[in-house]
Every structure is written in C-alpha cells, then in structure tokens.
Design a protein around this nucleic acid. Sequence first.
DNA 1: TGCCAGGCGGGGT
DNA 2: ACCCCGCATGGC
Length: 303
Amino acid sequence: MASRRVCCGSRNILPWRLVLGAYSFPWEFNGEEAYYVFDNAVITAVLRESSAELCAIPFGMDVDAYEKIILFFDLGNPYSEFYEKALGDPLLSEFAKKYMGWRPRLTSLWWATIIGICQQNTGFIQGWRMLASITKLYGKKIIVGSKALLIPPTPADVLKHPDLLVKARTGYRAETIIRVAKLFAEKDEDDIGYDELISIKGIGRYTASLALVLARREYWRAPIDRWLKKIISHVYHIDDRYADRIYHEIWGDYQGLAALATTIALDAVPLRKALERIDNGILVPTIMDKPTPANMWKFTNYW
DNA sequence: TGCCAGGCGGGGT
DNA sequence: ACCCCGCATGGC
C-alpha cells in the first residue's frame, strides 16, 4: 500500500501540551508524542519547546495528508474571537490567559456520539472509564511502522460483539450505543446530522450537540447538561431556566467551545465542588492525583 | 444502606 | 411549559 508521509512544523503558537493531551488516553499521548487516527490517516505529533512537529500518514491514495493535519487541529483558525470574549469572562478568563489558542482535536462523529452517550447521567471518570473499557475490550489495533495503535471499535465491530458493551459497564447505555452503531453501519457519516442523531432513542439535545461540537466543530451548538446549567446560573447570577438563553447571548457562535473549555478549566469535578472552585477562583486545571480532562493521559495504569 | 451523577424518554398535569 | 420517575453502574 502506497502511503505518503507528510510532516510539518507547527507554525501556530498553541498550547500544544493541552491540545495534544486534553481528553487523551495514555495510548494516544504520553507527554511527548501523540498518535491519533483520524479519517483514513494517522496523525502524529511530537512536542517541542513551544511548538510541535506534526505528521500525517494517510491510508488511502487520494488523501491530502497536509490538509488532514490542518483540519484535525483547525490550524487555519486562530480562534481570536472566542479568546477575546473568554478574556473578559469571569469563568474562562484565567483559562484563556494560560491556554490561549487551545482547541479540541477532531473526533469521528461515530466515536463522538459514543463519548456523549458515556457522559449521560454519570461523572467524568466513570464515563471515560466506559470509553476506555470499550476501546480495550474490542482491542482494535492498527499497525503504523513498528507501533500498534489502540483505536476505538467501528460500528460493525460493535454490532458483531454487542455483549462487550455491557462488559464495559455501560449499563443501560449499551442499547443506545447499539442503535447508534446500526445507524452508522448503514449510513455514511457525512450524511448524519443533528436531526438524524436525536431521532435515535437515547440521544437527546446534549449528546447530539456534544457529538457535533467534537466531530464537526459546530461550536454554535450548546451541549448544556445539568452540571453546566447550574454553573451558568451560579456564575452569571440568573435562574436555571434562563441558562440556555444567557449562554447563547454571551457566547453566541462559541457556546460549544466555551462548554468544553469549562470542563477542562474546572477539572470536570462534580457540581458541588465545581461551584466551590468557582467561588475560590480556582479556574485552571490543578488536580494531579486523579484523572481530569487535562491530565488523564498520565494515568497509564488506571484505565 | 440509600442516595445521586455532564441524560433521556415516557408519562402525567 | 413544566414536573416526576425509572434506568445500570459505581462512589460516597
């Protein structure tokens, strides 16, 4: 199989450690090197002093590897509008100062939807444990050079061994995941959007919005759950009922990005503690001894 | 032990 | 437009 490997230095000044490490498992990022599989390519990154060396190894013939790198990290976008707003925000200003330019990497819509489902009615650690267990139990790997990369199962893999979902302790979410797998097995990802997602039993506004934020950078969508709703009403001193409206007014086209940044800034701690942290002004990642969105890649023997 | 968590759907009023 | 409940699982 012919594959052209394309490398480039990062011309963008970005907080690369967080870009590579946020919501990454240890098998994706080890503090120095990162390996991601994205849309028929493996994207690798090596952390340098204040930049990163980025490579893409495409599987197919007609894949523009350079374009993949740009897309995966959204390198054409400085996110200046978002960070200007964030600098003036009581909750995100400190995060914005420290991590200016941070953005999520792209995730496939299939896996992003599973990520959303595994956040439903549970805490950060339990949810990401489910995702780790799913990944490990299916044990899907691809070989790149001398390395075997662990990657999430495909919809077909899930439909072939649906029992592994319960084994991964997903509980009642397993049925929803199977319904999602059926949809993605029969339909092209590009033809699936919000309406398609929420038509699946077990997927609602939150899950569909989060999936599209992670997979399509539809940052104008607002994945507001009970946790964020309470945080919004606390920070902006308004009633719960207006949280959606206020968030839209404040963040406009960047609600989804603000929501993600908030989970990182508050280490995704449970609501009660999140409100305490806000009152105490601890608004950047600080927790070291337990997995958080920012540091979960360090917990090599945990997942 | 019972409650409760980054939801959701189904049922009510 | 609300309110309420059950749901797998695991942590406290």
